[in-house]
Computed example of a mutant assay.
Amino acid sequence: MDNKRYFSIGEVSRLKNVTIKALRYYHDIGLLIPAYTNPDNGYRYYTMNQFIDLDIIKICKQSNVGVKEIKALFAKADTDYLKLYLEQKNEEIHKKIKKLEELNKRIEILKAAIHSSENELMNNGFKIQTFEKRYFLSLPTQGGELNEIKSFDKLDEKLGEFSINTFQYGLIYSCHYDHWEISDVFRLITSDDYRLLKDTSNVSEMPKGEYLTINCTRDAEMETFQSVKEYLEKNSLKCNKVYMFYLVADVFNQYNHFSQFQISLKPTP
Score class of each variant (00 low, 15 high):
Met1Cys: 07
Met1Ile: 06
Lys4Glu: 15
Phe7Gln: 01
Phe7Ser: 01
Glu11Leu: 08
Ser13Ala: 06
Ser13Cys: 05
Arg14Met: 11
Leu15Asp: 01
Leu15His: 03
Asn17Arg: 07
Ile20Gly: 02
Arg24Ile: 10
His27Ala: 06
Ile29Tyr: 00
Ala35Leu: 01
Ala35Trp: 04
Ala35Lys: 09
Ala35His: 12
Tyr36Ser: 03
Asp40Ala: 03
Asp40Ile: 07
Gly42Arg: 03
Tyr43Gln: 08
Tyr43Met: 03
Tyr46Ile: 07
Asn49Ser: 14
Asp53Met: 09
Leu54Tyr: 10
Ile56Thr: 08
Ile59Thr: 15
Ile59Phe: 14
Cys60Leu: 10
Ser63Tyr: 01
Ser63Glu: 06
Gly66Trp: 13
Gly66His: 15
Lys68Trp: 04
Ile70Arg: 03
Ala75Trp: 03
Ala75Glu: 14
Lys76Leu: 09
Lys76Ser: 06
Asp78Gln: 04
Thr79His: 13
Tyr81Asn: 10
Tyr85Trp: 14
Glu87Asn: 11
Glu87Ser: 10
His94Val: 10
Lys95Ser: 10
Lys99Ile: 04
Lys99Val: 04
Asn104Phe: 05
Lys105His: 08
Lys105Gln: 12
Ile107Arg: 01
Ile107Asn: 02
Glu108Ser: 07
Ala113Glu: 00
Ala113Pro: 01
His115Asp: 12
Glu118Ala: 04
Glu120Asp: 12
Asn123Pro: 05
Gln129His: 05
Thr130Val: 11
Thr130Cys: 07
Phe131Arg: 13
Phe131His: 06
Lys133Phe: 02
Tyr135Gly: 11
Phe136Trp: 07
Leu139Ser: 03
Gln142Val: 10
Gly144Trp: 06
Gly144Thr: 05
Leu146Ile: 15
Leu146Gly: 12
Asn147Ile: 03
Ile149His: 09
Lys154Cys: 09
Lys154Glu: 15
Leu155Met: 09
Leu155Ser: 08
Lys158Ala: 15
Lys158Asp: 14
Leu159Trp: 11
Glu161His: 13
Ile164Trp: 05
Tyr169Glu: 05
Ser174Tyr: 09
Ser174Gly: 06
Ser174Val: 03
Tyr177Ser: 15
His179Arg: 14
His179Pro: 01
Trp180Ala: 02
Glu181Arg: 09
Glu181Pro: 02
Glu181Ala: 10
Ser183Ala: 13
Asp184Ala: 13
Val185Trp: 00
Phe186Glu: 00
Arg187Leu: 13
Ser191His: 13
Asp192Ser: 14
Asp192Leu: 14
Leu196Pro: 04
Leu197Phe: 11
Lys198Gln: 13
Asp199His: 15
Asp199Leu: 09
Thr200Tyr: 15
Val203Asp: 06
Val203Glu: 06
Glu205Arg: 13
Gly209Ala: 05
Ile214Pro: 00
Asn215Met: 03
Glu221Lys: 07
Glu221Ser: 05
Met222Tyr: 13
Glu223Cys: 02
Ser227Ala: 13
Val228Ala: 01
Lys229Met: 12
Lys229Asn: 11
Asn235Asp: 01
Asn235Ile: 01
Ser236Lys: 12
Leu237Gln: 02
Cys239Lys: 08
Cys239Ala: 08
Lys241His: 09
Ala249Leu: 12
Phe252Asp: 06
Phe252Ile: 01
Phe252Arg: 01
Asn253Phe: 02
Gln254Glu: 11
His257Cys: 11
Gln260Tyr: 05
Phe261Arg: 00
Phe261Trp: 03
Lys266Thr: 15
Pro269Asn: 10
